[in-house]
Design a binder for these strands. Structure first.
Length: 357
RNA sequence: GGGUGUGUCGCAUAGUGGCAAUUGCUCCUGACUGUAAAUCAGGCGUCCUACGGACUUCGCAGGUUCGAGUCCUGCCGCACCCA
């Protein structure tokens, strides 16, 4: 297997980013339980926000009045917005009553109040310009991997058609908003095709013809058994031109990320470190995880990870953290999120320094 | 001393005679991958040749009954009321 680790610098209006890097998901414009200081102390800079969630709440009027998402969040570092395609589609795939996908657009009911909304490829781009992010993603059609090949092929065609419309709208917005080449946000296409390499290849080629700054791995990268689709993820990277960014959306576990870096993927985002942290599962340096809620930690007065220099491990014991989880103390979630994100940041730092060698 | 009521798996609660027994909490374990997720799922009498089976359970001791957590008697504990 060819090792294809890469090192690139992305320049944005809110600072430079060195690849490969990991972005925590601040989906709704915040990291649950964590504040700006927590994140900056860990070394978090780029983060992902979500078009769909922010559009529904607090709504674009508020974000516009706040002069964009950076000001709203008071986050001076780079932000990437996901288009919301994945969210709307998984909503509809889980419950067809929640909406309808047409070639023109996607229509859905807000799970919050049932109100009807429409997002077209053009609208998704407009919203992301209104957010004022540094990197944006086209609206795509991510079907479940379990769908028959014909349906996946249909989703690939729609993804390509929508990518074209997104690119046209993107150019239009640049002109309308008088954004110069050096200040423009980066835009990413998303490669669909499920488990089918031929579809992935075709989708990638068509997207490259349209031309984006980077390309993402779309839909789920694990099969129905939850097993990492190694070959598909590896081969898909090779369908993306060397000089373009490769964004492994939603990946993943530390193990999967390390594999993907080896395949040539540059960018990652995933809810795992924060969500699992909030649920009490902590990453430790031997590559394993512990569930701090387990009874065996009740009287364990050692740190979560003796090799970790995060706020949690420097100050508190497993016993104490478990106690806070048992008591449902919100501080437990914050400390666990800090620890897990620090673990991810350290992992990426280590990967980058290994690339240097 | 008299009266009334009550005693169920850690706690709290269901339970017309067919029940290994309800529900909540606690507790134990697991899941979590572009966040409908401070969420969700499973377990919680013992044992086994384990989508089934065996045995032991509802304060204690007897009794009635094919069959008792459920009915009867006595005892013990607890609660309240009257002296």
């Amino acid at each position: 297997m060819k090792e294809d680790k890469r090192k690139k610098i992305i320049k944005t209006m809110h600072g430079e980013i060195q690849t490969p890097f990991f972005m925590p998901d601040a989906t709704r414009g915040f990291m649950r339980s964590m504040d700006k200081n927590d994140l900056e102390q860990i070394g978090v800079e780029p983060m992902v926000v979500n078009t769909y969630h922010l559009y529904l709440q607090p709504g674009m009027e508020t974000i516009k009045k706040a002069s964009g998402i950076h000001k709203f969040m008071n986050w001076p570092h780079p932000l990437l917005s996901d288009s919301g395609g994945y969210q709307v589609f998984s909503l509809i795939h889980k419950n067809p009553k929640m909406g309808k996908i047409t070639d023109k657009e996607v229509i859905f009911h807000s799970p919050l109040d049932g109100s009807i909304h429409k997002i077209s490829p053009e609208y998704a781009i407009q919203i992301q310009f209104d957010l004022g992010v540094d990197m944006m993603v086209v609206l795509d059609d991510p079907p479940p991997n379990s769908y028959p090949k014909e349906k996946i092929a249909k989703a690939v065609d729609r993804t390509i058609a929508w990518a074209k419309r997104c690119k046209v709208e993107y150019e239009k917005q640049l002109e309308k908003r008088k954004i110069s080449e050096k200040d423009r946000p980066l835009i990413f296409g998303v490669i669909q095709g499920g488990e089918h390499l031929d579809l992935r290849k075709y989708c990638a080629e068509e997207l490259v013809k349209i031309g984006f700054d980077g390309y993402g791995f779309g839909a789920r990268h694990v099969d129905s058994d939850g097993k990492f689709m190694e070959e598909v993820v590896r081969e898909t990277a090779s369908f993306i031109p060397e000089d373009s960014l490769r964004f492994a959306l939603g990946i993943g576990t530390p193990e999967d990320i390390m594999k993907c870096v080896g395949y040539g993927w540059d960018m990652f985002d995933c809810v795992i470190p924060t969500r699992e942290g909030r649920h009490g599962r902590l990453f430790i340096s031997d590559g394993k995880t512990i569930n701090i809620n387990n009874g065996k930690f009740k009287d364990d007065f050692s740190p979560v990870d003796s090799k970790c220099d995060c706020m949690l491990c420097q100050n508190h014991t497993r016993s104490y953290l478990r106690h806070m989880f048992q008591m449902k103390e919100p501080l437990a979630m914050r400390l666990a999120s800090i620890h897990n994100l620090k673990f991810y940041m350290d992992l990426m730092e280590k990967i980058r320094s290994d690339v240097d060698k």
